[in-house]
């Protein structure tokens, strides 16, 4: 694995809210390297800093100190417009609450992104990749939670991002539906080669990853590599 180029590097990344004795330190100096094409799982309790890291890497939040690079770009040095362009070109997001646009059908939710992407997949192809070819003209209100999350994944991958950032993608789903969503993420990682970072509370999910990072109290507690990835279908919780 180590021969792959690094897609993310961070050095001494910190994030605090407030100042003085009441300051909250969400990140206390994180040094992490993520390689292109990896499937990485971030584990840790609430407030351990994993979401903060993902938000900074995704260009949604700024760091207090330290640096983060996406390939050769220092994202901690970008302004708001630069971050927007970075998200637009390189990043796909999947959220716990799907964040689909209620006024658009499944196909249109995907098209929303393909319209502004440089070299997108056909929306239909992206939806087929997550097994939703039969539900393309349904509105979010007409889809189940798992289906909505798979539309969100299709929307995230349709622009062929280099990285897919997933914050608790199965957090709102039952285990069977959750596995179907994880399968979709694994397929994208394997077949398209997209780097995938998944935040979860659920330690079982770590088995499907190449790399597992444990967070505690704003810092990396451990960083391990799995010798073998288990297919999501073999997982259960």
């Amino acid at each position: 694995m180590s021969e792959r180029p690094a897609i993310y590097r961070t050095a001494g990344l910190t994030k605090s809210y407030g100042t003085g004795p009441t300051a909250v330190h969400a990140l206390r100096g994180v040094d992490l390297t993520v390689h292109a094409g990896e499937l990485l799982v971030l584990l840790g309790p609430s407030g351990s800093g994993k979401s903060t890291l993902l938000n900074i890497l995704g260009g949604l939040d700024s760091a207090t100190s330290g640096q983060a690079w996406f390939e050769d770009t220092e994202i901690t040095a970008l302004d708001a417009d630069g971050l927007t362009e970075y998200r637009r070109r390189s990043i796909g997001f999947v959220f716990q609450f799907y964040n689909l646009i209620a006024a658009l059908t499944a196909r249109e939710n995907v098209q929303l992104i393909t319209d502004i992407a440089e070299d997108p997949m056909a929306p239909e192809a992206a939806l087929a990749l997550v097994g939703l070819e039969g539900r393309m003209d349904h509105f979010p209100a007409q889809l189940s939670g798992g289906e909505q999350q798979r539309v969100a994944i299709a929307r995230a991958i349709a622009k062929r991002p280099q990285v897919l950032l997933c914050d608790e993608p199965t957090g709102a789903l039952d285990s069977e539906t959750g596995i179907r969503v994880l399968t979709a993420l694994e397929t994208v990682n394997r077949e398209v080669g997209t780097t995938v970072m998944i935040i979860t509370h659920n330690a079982v999910i770590a088995d499907m990853a190449d790399e597992v990072v444990h967070f505690a109290d704003g810092a990396i507690a451990s960083h391990t590599s799995n010798p073998r990835r288990r297919p999501p279908g073999e997982l259960s919780w």
Binding site: L60, I91, F93, N99, I113
Partner: peptide, 15 residues
């Protein structure tokens, strides 16, 4: 939420 989602997904402020 829709607008924030669009912004996160890479839409510019004006868009």
């Amino acid at each position: 939420r829709d607008l924030a989602s669009m912004r996160v997904l890479g839409f510019r402020k004006g868009e």
